[in-house]
Simulated assay, not measured.
Amino acid sequence: MPNTWNPFELIARRWQPSAAFVRRAALATVVMSVVIVVTGGAVRLTQSGLGCSTWPKCTPDSLTPTAAMGINGLIEFGNRLLTYVLCAFIGVFIIAARARAPRRRSLTRLGWAMFWVVMGNAVWGGIVVLTGLNPYLVAAHFLLTTALLTVSVLAWRRAAEGDEAPRDLVSRPVRQLSGLLVLATGALTVLGTVVTGAGPHAGDAKKVHRIPVDWHEITQLHVDFVYIVVGLSVALWFTLRAVKAPAAPRRMVLELFGCIAVQGVIGYVQYFAGLPEIVVGLHMLVSTLVWICVLRIHLALRDRGPVPAGDGETSGPKAEVPAPAEAGATAPQPAAGASSR
């Protein structure tokens, strides 16, 4: 017997969102995750990391910033308020995924995973403030935000596909190559946090402890990993063409090339121009786009069938069945009444 006191159950009885609405709600969480990364960077680049001197209050005596704290207090407090906006978007996604029939537990679990990552990162951000912007904790704070972005991209993808067992659209070595690209890009992101922790933008005008490594050397290592990511991307592009992979992942690799090209230009400009704040902020923005592109490519190389049709809905149009990835392989056949991708 359904639980009449369950608010999600009550909403589901009165509202049946479309599959398109659930996908848009998932995309909104991706956009907000990017916004949080960029605004968090703005806090550091404007030296507002300690704009609020404590946590969870802004000052020991005030929940909100005071006039004496100036613009830095407003920037730091504004970034804290954006956490509530992000939670609202995640809440809409959870409610929409829960209300839609048939119920897909995989989507609601991803939504709750996003929520708990946000809650954990909020507490972690408080610890960052209480420890005076410890660079190692700041780096972990950014990586937790990257984890949120990863889960939101996965939810966005899952909202556009079914719940069948994953079926590779290319051979296993090609999937492994895309997985290697994900790992290399993840390592590049981690190195970026080390560069930030050792670089001049400490997040506050006062003397803040930095990671004790040579900033120029760690930056060079970061650049070396950029070349690795570029090389793997080029290799993946030619491999996908060689095995006649579906058009979607090949197009996504081209999008990745565009993001990498823009990021490369921004990277060299910020290095030779002395790290101007606005350029560093753009670098952070495009880094999130690169990560999104890499994740989408990897997820696009497998298929989980069509989105389950809700009440009064029909399955979408059949997608093109990809050509076999290997010589002599048999083209996969779509299940009866379902579309294949």
Rank of each mutant, 00 (worst) to 15 (best):
1 M>S: 07
3 N>W: 02
5 W>R: 11
6 N>D: 13
7 P>T: 06
7 P>W: 08
8 F>P: 14
15 W>C: 01
15 W>T: 01
16 Q>M: 15
19 A>E: 05
22 V>G: 08
23 R>F: 00
26 A>S: 03
26 A>K: 01
30 V>S: 00
32 M>C: 03
39 T>D: 02
39 T>R: 01
39 T>M: 03
43 V>C: 05
44 R>F: 11
44 R>N: 12
48 S>C: 11
51 G>C: 07
51 G>Y: 10
57 K>A: 15
61 D>K: 04
65 P>V: 08
67 A>T: 14
67 A>G: 15
69 M>N: 03
69 M>L: 12
71 I>A: 15
74 L>K: 12
81 L>Q: 09
84 Y>D: 02
88 A>V: 12
90 I>E: 15
92 V>K: 05
96 A>E: 04
97 A>V: 04
99 A>L: 03
100 R>C: 11
102 P>F: 07
105 R>E: 15
105 R>H: 15
106 S>N: 08
106 S>I: 13
107 L>A: 08
115 F>P: 02
115 F>I: 08
116 W>I: 12
119 M>F: 14
124 W>C: 04
129 V>I: 09
133 L>M: 08
137 L>M: 10
137 L>T: 07
138 V>C: 02
138 V>P: 00
139 A>W: 05
144 L>K: 01
146 T>L: 05
146 T>M: 04
147 A>Y: 00
147 A>K: 01
158 R>V: 07
159 A>G: 00
159 A>K: 01
162 G>A: 03
166 P>G: 05
166 P>Y: 05
167 R>W: 04
167 R>K: 06
169 L>G: 10
169 L>W: 09
172 R>E: 13
172 R>C: 01
173 P>H: 10
178 S>K: 09
179 G>T: 05
179 G>K: 05
181 L>M: 11
185 T>D: 02
185 T>Q: 07
186 G>E: 08
187 A>G: 04
188 L>N: 04
190 V>A: 11
190 V>M: 08
191 L>W: 04
197 G>K: 03
197 G>I: 02
198 A>E: 11
199 G>D: 12
200 P>M: 06
201 H>A: 02
204 D>I: 03
207 K>C: 00
208 V>T: 14
210 R>C: 07
212 P>T: 14
213 V>S: 09
216 H>R: 06
219 T>M: 12
219 T>P: 00
224 D>Q: 09
227 Y>C: 04
227 Y>T: 11
232 L>A: 09
235 A>N: 06
235 A>W: 13
236 L>W: 13
248 A>N: 09
249 P>I: 08
250 R>S: 10
256 L>N: 03
258 G>Y: 11
260 I>V: 14
261 A>T: 11
266 I>M: 08
269 V>R: 06
269 V>C: 04
272 F>G: 00
273 A>L: 05
276 P>M: 09
281 G>A: 10
282 L>C: 10
286 V>A: 04
287 S>D: 07
288 T>Q: 13
290 V>L: 11
291 W>H: 05
292 I>N: 01
292 I>P: 01
296 R>G: 14
297 I>N: 13
298 H>W: 13
298 H>F: 14
299 L>N: 03
302 R>L: 09
303 D>H: 13
305 G>L: 06
306 P>G: 13
310 G>D: 02
321 V>I: 15
322 P>E: 11
323 A>G: 00
324 P>K: 13
325 A>D: 14
326 E>C: 02
330 T>V: 13
331 A>W: 00
332 P>M: 14
335 A>D: 15
335 A>F: 14
336 A>H: 12
336 A>T: 14
340 S>Q: 14
